[in-house]
Amino acid sequence: MPLLHKLAAVLVVVAVVLGLTLPGDRDARRAATAVRAAAGEKAAAGRPPVPSVAPGSPRASGTPTPTPSVTAPIPPATAEAARVRADELGMVPVLMYHRIMKKPELSLDRSVQEFRDEVNRLADEGYAPITAAEFVAGRIDVPAGRHPVVLTFDDSTPGHFGLDAAGNPAPDTAVAILQEAARTHPGFRATATFYLNKDIFGLGDRAADGLKWLISHGYEIGNHTVTHADLSRLSKQGVRAEIGGMEDQIVALTGAHTTTFAYPFGAVPRKSEWARADGARYGFKGVFLAGWKPSASPFTTGFDRWAIDRVRSEGKIKENDCRQFCSTAWLDYLDKHPMERYTSDGDPATVTFPAAEEKRLAPSFRPYGRRY
């Protein structure tokens, strides 16, 4: 069966040169680089493979996979897909959050109210949250006319999630705000991906209970190293100790491996494959940078699952050119240029797009393409 990704050209993000390095930013102040990776890498030995097909799609049916053809005509889209102007080759915002606090202290902090306002904006503008793992696997199952968005949180700080005395999300944490948005905006899904370091939300001996709550409520747990180390400065052994040590801790607490990884500082090791897999200890399906633009769709020739761009959550401030490259600016841009963003056709078994975009469809997905 084909995997729902097609890796493409080398993507090099040099934040210092672009002037996008974020002073005080633990995840964006270092240059992020990526290398070409071959498609179809198998899951690490001893770990079950992550599903790589959309639920209900012909790719999951067990039937023989059609041989991709660059000449066979692509069938027409449904009338509904054309009506909502579906474009599943468009850009997907992957938003990057750090501390959520009542009173921000550092450049990457966002206030509780700023986060609540951004979540409500996403809901009002038709965005549908999915996890990083779902995005990497191409399992993008959102209603027709809506737009997937991936919410990622680095460093597992208390403002992301906590438990009150009754075992529910602590008030004014990111999770509590997402749950609130799901209650007040019908159809808005409360989900996100949390990239953990060793001090897990400051929960101490309640960490296992906290992770159990998150996983049982549809949130994803990801790996962000034990100590938030700069992997570009470490040996192979050091890189694998940082990532493997965090994976060991997560498996001990949850009984399951993680699927995705986010580079601390956006810093890539000398050999990026050191971070991708280490035998049965860890083996990721996608790796996220600390970037400055929305990600390419996983169905395009431009998608590289080993170097997925993210966007810093921030208003249109002067610092680090957030007037153009942070979340508020990008959401404004996509609102003004709707044909550049991913709009769902409502059917996870097909990949719909305007006819003029056909050349951007990765060959692996041609059998599932629909055009209008």
Rank of each mutant, 00 (worst) to 15 (best):
F284C: 02
G162S: 07
E273M: 10
E358W: 02
Y372F: 13
K103G: 06
P55Q: 06
P354F: 09
D345G: 13
I140E: 03
P348W: 05
Y368L: 14
E125A: 12
P148N: 06
V150L: 08
P66G: 05
L89H: 10
S272F: 11
G222I: 04
Y372G: 11
L214E: 02
R276A: 11
P186C: 08
L22F: 14
D278T: 02
D332M: 05
R110E: 12
C326E: 11
S313Q: 13
T71Y: 08
A77E: 09
A8I: 13
A82I: 08
I200G: 01
V150T: 03
G126I: 02
A329S: 12
P269D: 12
G218Q: 03
H224A: 09
D309I: 00
V175I: 14
A362W: 03
G24F: 07
C326R: 09
L163N: 09
D304W: 00
F299E: 04
Y219T: 00
G279F: 01
N223H: 03
G244E: 14
P55K: 10
L20V: 09
P93K: 06
A349N: 02
T193G: 06
A182M: 05
K293S: 06
R47K: 06
G145W: 06
K318L: 15
T78K: 07
Y333S: 12
F265E: 15
L11Q: 15
R30Q: 15
R206W: 00
N320L: 04
E114I: 01
I317S: 13
T71K: 10
I130M: 01
D87L: 09
V112T: 15
R310E: 07
V251D: 10
I243Q: 10
P338T: 04
W274K: 10
D141A: 13
Y127H: 04
E134W: 00
R121H: 09
N168L: 13
Y195K: 00
A307R: 10
V70K: 11
H147S: 15
T259W: 11
A79P: 00
Q179S: 09
T301C: 05
